[in-house]
Computed example of a mutant assay.
Amino acid sequence: MDFDVRDLAPEDPRQYGNDQEFTLYYDETNNIRKLLLTERGLNVTKHDNFVLGGIVLRPGQSIGDIEELRRVLWIQKSAEEIKFDLVAKGGFERILDSRKLGQTLSWLLERDIGIHYDNLNILNWSILDIVESVVADKRFGEFLPFHRELKNELHRIVLSDLQSFLAMLRRYGYPDLAEGTAGQFVSEVRQFIQDHWPASAFPATEMLNEMLLRAQSINELAFLAGEKRDYLIEGFEDFYLHRICSFRNSTHVFDEELTVQAAIGGIRILDGGREVPFSFVDSKQVGEIQLSDVVVGFLGKYFTFIEQTPLPALLRKRKELTKVQAANLELLAQLIEISDKTCNVLLHRITTMDSDWKSDAFLFGSKPPPHLLAA
C-alpha cells in the first residue's frame, strides 16, 4: 500500500525546517494499544500521555561512544542496553532529581544533539471530534478560528466529571453516532457543560455553550459517523505515519514495536516518486535508540505530570525545586530551545491549550492566563 506524504501531512506555511535531511531516532512510551469505552468508563485505569520521539541528528553528527556514556552512568555490564529505568525511577519529581538524568541530557547538549517528540493527550484526542465536526459545517464557520479554544474548554469541563461524560458517549455509540441522533447528542453535551459550568469561566466557555446551542439543529456530525462503536483509539500507527510524512527528506529509525510494525510494515511513503525511508531496529544494537528511550521515558513522565497537576501547584513546586531538579529542568529547556530553533515541527504537542500554557509556565516561567491560576 502506498501513501503520498501530502495526503497524511499537508504542507503548513507556519512550519519551518522540516525539509532538512535529519536522521530521526524514535522510541515510545505509554502506548496502551487501544482506548475503548466500556461499562466502567475506559478499558484502562491509566491514560497517561502517549509520547513518540527521541533524538535527532543532522548530517555529520554523532552521539559519540555509547560505551563511554555507559561508564559515565555506571550502567552494569549485565545490562544489555541503556534504558530509562536504569537512569531514573519513580514519580516525576523523583526522576527530575536524578543525577544520571542530568548526565544524559548534558551528553546530548555537549554534542549539540536535539530532541523531537509527538506528545498526545489521549483523552483530548478522543473527544475533540465533537468540536471539529461542528466547525467543519459551513453554517458554523465563524467558530472555526477558535476551534482550539473550544476544544480546550470541552476537555477542561469534561475532566470535572469524566465518568458521567464517558457513560453518555457510550449510550450514543460514540464515535459512531446512529443516524438522526446528532442533534440530541449535541444537546446532551451542552447540558453536561451547563451542569458542570466552571467557576473560572471565560469567553471561550460562553462561546462553546453558544456553539452547542446553535448546533442542536445539526443533522450529522461529519467525523462521528462510519466509525467503530466504542473505539476511541484503535491504534497509534497513524502517529508514526504522520511523523514520517512530516519529515519527507529525513530517515526514520524506530525501536522495534511489533504491533506498529504489523500495521505499517507493508506501507510505502512516497514523496513524488521517491520513497521516504523508515525502519525498525533492535535497540540493543543502536545507541541512538537507547538515548531515545531515556529522552522519551523522561518526556512521558514530564507531560503526564503537567497534565495532572494544577497550575498553582506547579508554580509552587517550581519554587521548591532542589538544585539537581532545577538543573535538569534547565537542561530540558535548553534541548527544547535548540530543537525549536532548528525546526518547529520537531516538537509537536497534540494537547490542550491549558496543557501548553502550564508546561510553558513551569519550564520557561511564562505568564499563564488568569483562569489557570484559579484551578
Rank of each mutant, 00 (worst) to 15 (best):
F3I: 15
R6G: 09
R6C: 09
A9F: 12
P10C: 09
L24C: 04
Y25H: 08
L42A: 07
K46Y: 11
D48M: 05
I55N: 05
L57N: 02
L57G: 00
S62K: 04
D65A: 03
E68P: 00
D85V: 09
L86E: 03
A88C: 08
G91A: 12
I95Y: 03
I95S: 10
K100R: 15
T104Q: 06
T104V: 15
E110Y: 00
E110M: 11
I115L: 12
I115F: 07
H116E: 01
Y117R: 15
N121W: 09
N121L: 10
I122V: 15
I122M: 15
N124Y: 12
S126A: 14
I130V: 14
E132T: 08
S133W: 13
A136F: 11
P145G: 01
F146R: 15
H147T: 12
L150G: 05
L150E: 10
E153H: 01
H155M: 15
S164M: 08
R170Y: 10
A178N: 12
G180L: 08
T181G: 02
F185M: 05
V186D: 09
F192A: 03
Q194K: 12
Q194Y: 06
W197S: 10
T205V: 08
E206P: 04
E206D: 13
L212N: 06
L212H: 04
A215R: 14
I218Y: 04
A222N: 12
G226M: 04
E227H: 11
D230K: 06
I233Y: 02
D238G: 14
N249P: 00
N249A: 09
T259P: 00
Q261R: 12
G265M: 05
I267L: 13
L270F: 04
G272E: 00
P277M: 04
F278N: 04
S283V: 03
Q290N: 07
S292V: 03
G297D: 10
F298A: 06
G300A: 02
G300T: 02
G300S: 06
K301A: 14
F303M: 13
T309K: 07
L314C: 05
L315R: 09
K319F: 10
E320F: 08
T322P: 09
K323F: 11
Q325V: 11
A333H: 04
H348S: 13
T351F: 02
T352N: 05
D354M: 00
K367C: 02
P369N: 06
P369A: 04
H371K: 12
A374C: 10
